[in-house]
Design a protein around this nucleic acid. Sequence first.
DNA 1: CGGAGCGGGATTTTT
DNA 2: TCCCGCTCCG
Length: 791
Amino acid sequence: MTARNASYQPPQPAEGGSAQGGTAPSGIIEGGIAARARAAAAPPYLDGLNAEQREAVETTDGPVLVLAGAGTGKTRVLTTRIAHILATGRARPGQILAVTFTNKAAREMRSRIGALIGQSVEGMAWLGTFHSIGVKILRTHAELAGLKRDFTILDTDDQIRLLKQIIQAENIDDKRWPARQLAAHIDGWKNRGLTPDKVPQGEAYAFANGRGGELYKMYQERLRILNAVDFGDLLLETLDVLRKHPDVLEDYQRRFRYVLVDEYQDTNVVQYLWLRLLARREDGAPGNICCVGDDDQSIYGWRGADVDNILRFEKDFPGSKVIRLERNYRSKAHILAAASHLIAHNEGRLGKTLHTEDEDGEKVAVACAWDSEEEARQIGEEIERLQRKGESLDQIAILVRASFQMREFEDRFVTLGLPYRVIGGPRFYERAEIRDALAYFRVVVQPADDLAFERIVNLPRRGLGDATLKILHAYARHHSVPLTQAAAVLVETEELKPKPRTALRQVLEMFERWRGELETTAHTELAPVILDESGYTRMWLDDKSPDAPGRLENLKELVRSMEPYESMTGFLEHVSLVMDAESGEQEEKVSLMTLHSAKGLEFDTVFLPGWEEGLFPHQRALDESGKSGLEEERRLAYVGITRARQRARIWFASNRRIHGLWQSSIPSRFLDELPASSVDVVETGSVSGNWGYGASRFDNRETFSSPYDTPGWQRAQGRKASGARTSAPRLIEGEVIARSSGTASAFAKGERVFHQKFGYGRVTAIEGNKLTVDFETSGPKRVIDSFLEKH
DNA sequence: CGGAGCGGGATTTTT
DNA sequence: TCCCGCTCCG
């Protein structure tokens, strides 16, 4: 343990991330002679860890679950633990399996381990995302899965196009049974480890009158023919190989002496099965697996994550140790109190009590705006105020529940000239022009890539329309050959009309030429040549739409991004797994993102707008998943609040436009669940108080027998019991504020009415409960009848 | 082949 | 209301 320490450097203060500031607790605090003795000999990388963190680092053997609350130094523990395992000679870098969900997390871990042990971590070949490790294993044993080693990885877009082809080939109405939906089913099945033969009858029946399972099977067969896999397969097929080939499995079990898992609460069933298999010793006992996670931050249930995995850990891994990290190093006390009190309303949780030694700080502010426009305006003003006080815009974030909420903020920021960045929007590699360019590269490298070939044969237009493609498909299907090969045969026959035949021959010749040049030319030089010679660049140059220049710019950026890769193949492999591109911005900007994409980030100031029933908690989460949906929404609220270091400001608007209609809204039940003692109700002048809103709405109880007796929950139940959401009266503390008639409207054409937002007007048209009213001050608007009063 | 016009859908997102 | 994708027609 000591001999190697010399080569390791003291820990660097963690950059940004979950930096844990202040003084390091010494061994004395931990107490006990043994602890002191350990502290005396402690290697420098353990410096600054608190007792629990240190325990999590040093308990290397057997299964360990580290319950790491928000801001408790989770990444630090994970990386230090790896450094510790390496430093003490327990394993070599290649013997540690460390999995994350995102590439970003994997990158961060890699760089932090590097900083910790003061050297590069190239040896850590098995640090990566579940998917990248899946690919690695699957490529090695491709033939065991009926694949060739150079299989292609389809992204969601390819997947849907392929499914659509299958649905259409089966003469199923793809309008009634959209490929997207089938893709969602298939993903769901794969997430749960279900191969086509294992899909429960009832679920298979849910798509296309019982043909779901059959279509899934056909899809898998088609993938085999294409020598391709989708994202789900990277996990499921790998699992299948490990299950069916004990010798292969044993090989990996022996190799991975230590297994570490980040964000364990986000794992789905396949990932869980995968880990259980890999982290088992040859004698069947659970191996050295360390899962780090926080059940309170499980917000991906809707995409297959199974919170039960973390809740069940102790049962799954007998003899395991559970370590709780409860000291928060991020937020001021009031923020932490608000978040803790809120999340305590959830029933299905392991339970943690976060605490901080930091001062109280500002109370969490709750403010009300008349409508979403005013909400954006007020927040904009507050940001300018903070900016004047010297706060960095980089330290300010607005976290919304749904992306449509972003627009109003963007509009406002543009008007104010306030620099902002949207995080998590459409990603670089998902843009059409990038996907087109990549399709060209894919066909060059892999002529059998039918999906890529189809995407660009006729882009730019070459006169190779549906008719030609149909002939190609027929031939390819009949002879079981890829489309390019079918094309090569068909250009030599009379089957195609002269025009398309020449065009097709030219396309094939181009690809042949580029393929030859790939041998001699650097991929970074060839890429622009391909784009130019194919006419693809020309296509955008000739395009007069306003976004064409931007697309050309993106193409240039794409070529630039190929630089670090040694070959075209290497680059494409990277792209298929890492769908993000780093952009090096330096200007200070406010961040705008959804609550989901905020997980793992932190800011001094966090604005949380849109805390209204129906939006947050989102109605759909409640309708589709009931209580567990509500609890996941509440966890999302918890994630939101705990992003803040210094101040959190929650907003709700009394009126919001949803799908073009103005709807009145009521404050979120989550506001009821905040502790009065840590909240400040902010008077915004005009309207707060209109709702009788005040301290009485907050939760004054220290404890609750059941969280489901809060006013918010009761209200929700009352609403649910009375049927459809729009037909039930909406209540605030007993007062009816809106009533929708559902079918026939109580209003007549020409009638004079009053609306709380627009004032007086006259009804000009009626469509069910949607009325068009010509308002005296603001002109004609479409509104729901329930917000109108007769006058 | 390309543009207009229509209907349906409109949480959250990674790989 | 707004946006996307598909169909239909010239």
